[in-house]
Design a protein around this nucleic acid. Structure first.
Lengths: 229, 229
DNA sequence: AGTGTTGCGATTGGATGCAATCGTGTCGTA
DNA sequence: TACGACACGATTGCATCCAATCGCAACACT
């Protein structure tokens, strides 16, 4: 599922977008931990392109907040301070309830069943990457009803920039916290089934806030976050 | 104030950023109305650069939401539908109160005086561009205390993408509506002086919501928005 | 007359090549 | 030994050049 292959053959006319997508996936997947140096030529070779589309991709990822560029120096995977991460989470607390509100009316029974299933799967897994993937999948599925372009993109961006810290943090939570996450997910599904948007908004908000507070109790995550497979 | 000169001489190492900034300013200023075709070579010549940094700039502005790119076809200034604009405003309703909250504690008496002065100036001007400039200045000054990077950028982006419609809409509001805007700005200053962050958040939220509703009553703004000086 | 097709100009996408800049290791000096 | 200057390699930034694609108009065909 992570970015592999996607190189040989296709000359579809937009290498920069392909490189950006692949590189974004790689960063989010943890292949490039925060602070990693990104060399243009290395990326170019890796994805079978020249440096020009790579640079365009880097500009896009910089706007995404995933990459930090310094003129005449190079590109690094963005590293968030605890304060910045906290800020992103506060932003998510405000924005994601809205996205859920916009999505909720368009979620049919099948979509809700799917959410339920994802929540169940999460409760049963202990593997970290699987947990992260399911969590992402759960929330995005809950937002899938919103045909919004701009807000969806915005939230996706906020998720992406904080993914490395969510990964590091996931390693730290105990069974009790994990149980709370499971309950909250279940409450989201319940609220959606009841058509109680207000309740849904409040659960999502609290869900994110709780994670933010827990993260703030683990500043060590932000001093040297590394992920080596 | 609009982008002129800024061409000859300086070889500072980051032409793409300069082009992006200048082009962004030009779009926000209304030099390129929504739907305008953007030809790479034209921009390149205009800012004394090659097409390569122009394309990098376009990728950045696309991520900003200001420009829409179609592969092998070209670039256009993004055009928002009424629904999309409404969505951006709903997002602003959620996010800007937070930004104000983060900013408020760091605003000193001098900053508040400045806000007061800007509000007064707005109440006395009738010229549209001046009104827009002061409005932007007022709100951004109220957010200036927040040393936040990510949230500030996000809000700036939301303002930029909706600027053309705010401009078109400003032409339509009557004296009564303008008076309400003035009052709301004054209430923001008052809340900040009192240190009542809750009140400030609520005023900002209502301020944006009211504008959103008024915009929704003028769908003609989104059918063919043009601004020719 | 209406419709599908084919060719050309205009424009974009991408690769290569060269100049400018930065980081780093080495050397010289106090 | 500690500190600063310098030169070299590595990397980035940008301009030029060529190929690929699209839009459009003229044309042929039913």
């Amino acid at each position: 599922m992570t970015a592999l292959s996607a190189s040989s053959g296709t000359r579809d006319g937009n290498a920069s977008v392909r490189v950006a997508d692949a590189l974004r996936d790689a960063i989010v997947a943890g292949d490039f931990p925060p602070g990693s140096r990104i060399r243009q030529e290395e990326i170019a070779e890796r994805f079978g392109a020249s440096r020009v589309p790579v640079r365009e991709a880097l500009k896009m990822l910089e706007a995404d907040g995933l990459v930090t560029l310094r003129a005449n120096a190079g590109a690094w995977v963005s590293r968030l301070s605890l304060d910045e991460c906290d800020e992103v989470y506060q932003t998510r607390e405000r924005v994601e309830p809205l996205l859920l509100r916009l999505s909720a009316p368009h979620l049919d029974a099948e979509a809700l069943d799917r959410l339920e299933r994802l929540a169940e799967q999460m409760a049963q897994t202990t593997e970290i990457e699987e947990f992260l993937r399911l969590d992402r999948d759960f929330h995005w599925s809950s937002y899938a009803g919103a045909d919004t372009l701009v807000l969806g993109d915005l939230v996706r961006r906020l998720w992406n920039t904080t993914q490395p810290y969510r990964r590091a943090y996931t390693r730290l939570i105990d069974a009790h916290s994990q149980r709370i996450v499971h309950d909250e997910h279940h409450m989201i599904v319940t609220a959606l089934r009841d058509g109680d948007i207000e309740a849904g908004e409040r659960v999502v908000e609290g869900h994110i806030r709780r994670t933010r507070r827990l993260l703030a109790q683990h500043p060590e995550v932000f001093t040297a976050a590394s992920t080596t497979p």
